[in-house]
Design a protein around this nucleic acid. Structure first.
Length: 582
RNA sequence: GCGUCCGUAGCUCAGUUGGAUAGAGCGUUUGCCUCCGGAGCAAAAGGCCGUGAGUUCGAAUCUCGCCGGACGCACCA
């Protein structure tokens, strides 16, 4: 956390595949079954032929559902060793799968030599039972194995209100924490308060300057200070409470102003975050690092590892030995610490608190800072893979396609609070979380306000509300849906569209794990869009309450109830509400 | 100059570990409200995946060059 967090820039990218979640792909119960069944049958086939599993052989879901439930390229890779054409091998393999794998209804060759496997309908219906059994825990997994992860995000300097860019970082960090929890991690969320150093001095100076001006004791305008109108407001507030303040000495006045302003601004930030449904469990003060001797302890750790040296009166850290471009200064020749120094101490402290995985959410403009932080982690004797940075790209605020100036002028929507007030928490969060964090996003206030497909949040929420409406009507009509369905009761789910929905539901847990593994929050919203689309289409095509038979009506209701569970759960991961009515 | 990231339909964006005919929404065109919520559904049109090579059974995906864009490269915070 670079101290200056330019407000409107924030996030980034591409999520370095974290080592933590691992080499194996985690799948939901249903999916795991499906893929494992095929994998083990393939292994049997290889054993029979006396061959090893080819490194490039995969079992995967085919892009086109017409190709079945899962596909393997095995035959393509066995053609050479078996000295047969890929298609002949595929035919042989398919015959084998049909005979040796459970729940397999069809196994067919396709294209250049793929084997497409289709499971029985009953196999897929089980996902409804799984959803009913797990309830709101549907989609949870143990992929994280309870590892302790610390997500640090926002961490804006308490020198002014949060801007929209901070909002994107806030939404991303908060959602990431929710996703990681769902994926089985023990997550703590944290905000690093830069309450030491130059920024704070400038804040105190700014308020003091305004205060003296208001009190009729003007002083020369400082070269550098915060000019926002909120500074004047704070100065007024202080004067109202104690008109005698202006008579203090500059040193004491600035100190009083700093302390008051910091607390006020921080309180405002906390309120803005709470209003945005963003949680931070820990508020970590930079000051406590310095005062508590933690910086010295971190320095000692680096020194013990042999990475520090003195030069030109400064203390240096040999980050270039660890992949950085050049060495960095920790303590300047004037004796003061660089920002990097407290950063190192901060991360040293984080590890000391027992976290296995540190995730920092930074503005993308700080990407150049990553290598030196990685170097620091390594010098502390930690696995650099246990430290990930999610970079957040900037937000371009627009009104009807035209850029809004990011000035401090009143009347322009630049603060997070203003934007949220204007478009609502749900729409704002959904928008922020729908794109890869490392791509800049255009945030058009007009578009996001509209209840159309311009902002898909309503599309997804509507799918949820619709299902709830049908379930209510069912209850009103006296249709009693058992809390737990039976496989026989679901036998009415036998169309292609039923299967599409069931398979989508089975992928929910997969999606959560992918999002957690890649630290890419946008997977959630895309999944929800696809699920919502299937639901709207299904709803339009099939009568539910007026189904051909009561049994089919119940089966469809159970399917929709499970789907609503997934929608609500997915929206929950984004911190977006799942309304019963709209 | 060096480094990181980005370039996919008119627009905004997905695309997992390299897989089959590259997807979705918006916009456009055409249909659908005697029927459970039309904030919806169905269908059509729309593509040199920036560009040129390479790797291989197979590339939007991996490698290199080039073009275009964003952002970094402090004894700043």
């Amino acid at each position: 956390m670079p101290a200056t967090r330019p407000p409107w820039r924030a996030i980034s990218s591409g999520g370095p595949p974290s080592p933590f979640p691992a080499s194996t792909t985690f799948r939901s119960f249903i999916d795991m079954q499906a893929f494992d069944i095929v994998r083990s049958a393939l292994a049997d086939f290889l054993k029979e032929k006396g061959l090893e599993w080819p490194a490039k052989a995969v079992v995967e879901p085919p892009k086109d559902p017409k190709h079945g439930d899962c596909a393997t390229n095995m035959a393509l890779l066995l053609a050479k060793p078996l000295k047969k054409s890929p298609r002949d091998v595929a035919a042989e393999l398919c015959a084998f799968l049909k005979d040796h794998a459970q729940d397999v209804e069809r196994a067919e060759t396709a294209g250049p030599g793929f084997c497409n496997v289709t499971f029985s309908q009953a196999f897929w219906r089980r996902v409804v039972l799984e959803a009913e059994e797990k309830g709101s825990a549907f989609g949870e997994s143990s992929a994280g194995k309870g590892r302790k992860a610390l997500v640090e995000y926002v961490s804006a300097n308490p020198t002014g209100p949060l801007h929209v860019g901070h909002g994107r970082g806030a939404a991303a960090g908060d959602s990431l924490a929710r996703i990681l929890r769902k994926a089985g991690y023990d997550v703590t969320t944290e905000y690093y308060i830069n309450d030491a150093g130059r920024q704070m001095r400038l804040l105190g100076l700014a308020v003091w300057y305004r205060l003296r001006g208001l009190a009729g004791r003007p002083m020369p305008e400082p070269e550098e200070y915060y000019r926002g109108s909120y500074i004047v407001d704070i100065a007024k507030e202080m004067l109202d409470q104690d008109p005698g303040l202006a008579q203090l000495s500059d040193a004491e006045g600035q100190e009083r102003c700093y302390a008051y302003a910091k607390d006020q601004i921080l309180a405002g930030i906390k309120q803005d975050l709470a209003d945005f449904r963003v949680e931070h469990q820990v508020w970590f003060s930079e000051k406590t690092l310095v005062d508590g001797g933690k910086v010295d302890r971190a320095f000692q750790a680096l020194k013990d590892a042999g990475y520090t040296y003195e030069k030109d009166g400064a203390l240096w850290f040999a980050t270039s030995k660890l992949g950085d471009d050049k060495d960095r200064v920790l303590r300047k020749s004037d004796g003061s610490l660089t920002y990097f120094a407290s950063d190192i101490a901060y991360h040293h402290d984080k590890y000391g608190r027992g976290y296995d995985w540190l995730i920092d959410v930074w503005g993308a403009d700080h990407h150049g800072y990553v290598p030196r932080m990685k170097a620091a982690v390594q010098a502390m004797g930690r696995d650099p893979a246990s430290f990930d940075v999610v970079l957040i790209q900037l937000v371009n605020l627009l009104v009807a396609g035209k850029p809004v100036e990011m000035s401090t002028r009143a009347g322009t929507f630049e603060t997070l609070a203003d934007v949220v007030k204007e478009v609502g928490v749900d729409a704002a969060r959904f928008m922020f979380l729908s794109r890869k964090t490392d791509a800049a996003v255009d945030f058009d206030l007009e578009a996001v306000k509209q209840r159309t497909m311009e902002n898909p949040v309503y599309y997804v929420q509507y799918a949820h509300a619709r299902i709830k409406a049908v379930l209510r009507r069912a209850a009103d009509a006296g249709v009693v849906l058992p809390e737990r369905s039976s496989l026989e009761g679901l036998s009415g789910l036998d169309t292609q569209d039923d299967m599409l929905l069931l398979r989508k539901l089975a992928l929910f847990q997969d999606m959560v794990e992918t999002a957690a593994r890649t630290l890419n929050v946008h997977h959630v919203s895309h999944y929800l869009m696809e699920l919502a689309q299937l639901l709207h289409s299904y709803y339009a095509k099939y009568p539910i309450l007026k189904a051909e038979t009561k049994a089919i009506a119940c089966a469809r209701l159970a399917l929709l109830r499970a789907a609503a569970q997934a929608v609500a759960s997915g929206l929950g991961l984004m911190g977006v509400s799942a309304p019963e009515h709209m």
